[in-house]
Design a protein around this nucleic acid. Structure first.
Lengths: 362, 362
DNA sequence: TTGTGCTTCTGAACCGTTACGGTCAGCACA
DNA sequence: TGTGCTGACCGTAACGGTTCAGAAGCACAA
């Protein structure tokens, strides 16, 4: 049986008795040839089943892939579960769409350090979303000779960045809790490094955290509370590797079991805070009466339950990252964009009860 | 100032005094050269800032892009809002990740018929998710000489398909409503064609709908209810172009205003049904006592409110589509995979009240 | 000595296209 | 008749790799 090789621009040109250039022009620069010839080219293409110029060959020649790569810490599928990541993704997609660029999600297996996917992605640039500073995939991205924008973390010398002022944002929240009297706090945070540590995170681990965002938030909390005499070394910080409501629940349980004196649970994400709320309810603790719970992100699910939190413009972050990469924003290089956040006081924060109240009721 | 051209495999070979083949082998087939030489190659690469073989050039030669294209009806950003689409996306991402393939989201502007993005996507195959049968982007995809899998719609001769039996699924639901006595029904459906028609959809429009899924569901409903003597021509069907809860609300309002005798609102998606529930509440209609509302999809938000609906395995659909495309499923070609659905009876369906009850209370 | 097999490396073809710098005919104009 | 311009088309050289059939060199057995 005869296997017909697929038609190419060259075979089409041969068939027509014209040069390859002319066929190419028929597709890319119609003004460069007569309408009549162009019609013939296109018709012959149809007849031969020529699907038009091969995108890969074109990319090689023009040095443009027409797509933006996205690198995430987690499994791709994870990103579709986390509302904050989703908002970012939506914003980024919006920017790409606006520029007619594709969005190439780079497959990452967080267990293994296989970076070949980064090396084989045909893209014009990368957006890196919230990865640890020692992530080998990030290193692979930076080794590629294409522009890169990092969102949230890590901060890399000479690389464009989009983020928020985590330190300032959570300091305001801490200030508010201090103001209304909280001194016995506990913290629930996301993973601090690439190794799994589902449990208490001591100061050494906090200080050396490979996730800049978490580190900054913990540092800011430490500074805030130490100014009012709280010994940070005694503040329980519970870390969870996977980011889920269920893990928020278990982390809250672990913390409250060990530190029942805590009057406020500060969580570095809304997801964790939602879990903490569940756990509080399960224990019969009334929020905010018996326990204050705060989050971070400002996802809609949090808004629905009136969570006290810090709202950050996740969609805007994605859009800003995309625009930065696609060059519709002109600034000095490297460019850093810091977006505004907003402290949202909801119904999950209140002054702590006095010790008497705790024992004898309000 | 001297602009150094980026290093290439050839320049590296020249620098080392070896052939290009050898350098290529250093990266791709370490067993083909001595460890010592390989070490030298890699070290020189580092020194010269050679980032490794260019992915686009490699793709051209090997005829593999290492990515799967995804075509959606809507703006990319829409996909990140619709829970069903999101589930699909997650499943597909899972399959891609498992195979180490990237996922290339093709940017589509549904307003304009610009298909260049399809032509310039460097991918090894396409997954098409739920597009109308006359979608020009779909035509562009099919013209590309790469394998394609369609999910849900449309059914195209000779093209692999992953979907459910919409007709059978909604027939079961209809059967149940008929069984418990509903005869005055109304239907809320998603867009039926590429043109916007936010309002009643008459039979002619239903029959010629370009979205196979919606057409199948409407047809099945018509058949079911006509067997018990309902004149389908008199059944109000309200269509909404954009798929959102707000549109579910307005569609329900429009339908109930014109047809207050309706005892059941059958919606072709959970999102629309959630909107219908809101509208019912706003009107003081108790569900299911005064009005039965049903959905389709089985998203978690629906489960939360106990919606009567048809659950379909959205994540599994994505995964199946990915596996089909990536060849981990062997079947005859073209291959059709039909996944199972499940009728979920929730708290939003009940027998209709008699006319007397409606006027005088239960 | 010859043949065989192994390791290590090479040369040249090939992937399918577009960029660049032309050529050439035809025509208007002085 | 010469000049200059324009529209239509073309030839060649990349773009940056991979692949495959061998060549060169060497060890070992017959």
């Amino acid at each position: 049986m005869h296997v017909r090789r697929p038609a190419t621009l060259a075979s089409l040109a041969a068939e027509l008795g014209v040069s390859r250039t002319t066929v190419s022009n028929a597709y890319n620069r119609p003004d460069q040839l007569s309408p009549e010839l162009r019609r013939r080219v296109l018709e012959t293409a149809r007849r031969l089943g020529y699907p038009g110029p091969d995108p890969v060959a074109r990319s090689l020649r023009t040095r443009k892939a027409g797509a933006v790569g996205l690198l995430l810490t987690e499994n791709l599928s994870y990103a579709f579960r986390d509302p904050a990541a989703l908002g970012f993704l939506e914003g980024l997609a919006l920017a790409c769409e606006g520029a007619g660029q594709g969005l190439h999600l780079v497959p990452v297996n967080p267990e293994r350090d296989d970076v070949t996917a980064v090396h084989s992605a045909g893209v014009d640039g990368f957006v890196v979303y919230s990865v640890p500073d020692d992530d080998p995939h990030l290193a692979a991205v930076l080794s590629r000779p294409v522009p890169t924008v990092v969102c949230d973390q890590p901060r890399v010398e000479g690389v464009d960045l989009v983020g928020i002022d985590d330190h300032a944002a959570i300091s305001r929240l801490a200030g508010r809790l201090i103001e209304i009297g909280h001194r016995h706090i506990g913290v629930l945070c996301m993973r601090l490094a690439r190794d799994r540590n589902d449990g208490f995170a001591l100061i050494a681990r906090q200080r050396t955290a490979h996730f800049h965002v978490q580190r900054a938030r913990l540092t800011a909390l430490a500074e805030s509370f130490e100014t009012v005499g709280v010994d940070w070394a005694r503040v329980p910080v519970v870390e969870r590797f996977d980011h889920s409501i269920a893990n928020g629940e278990s982390a809250a349980a672990q913390l409250l079991d060990a530190n029942p004196e805590v009057t406020a649970l500060i969580c570095t994400s809304d997801i964790l805070a939602l879990g903490a709320l569940n756990e509080a309810k399960r224990r019969g603790l009334r929020v905010p009466h018996d326990l204050t719970v705060t989050g971070f992100d400002g996802i809609v699910e949090a808004e629905r339950v009136g969570l006290t939190t810090i709202r950050q413009p996740v969609l805007e972050k994605g859009r800003a990252a995309g625009k930065l990469l696609l060059g519709s924003v002109e600034h000095s290089r490297p460019r850093h964009i810091t977006l505004d956040t907003e402290l949202v006081i909801g119904q999950t924060s209140a002054p702590p009860r006095t010790t008497e109240e705790r024992w004898f009721g309000p």
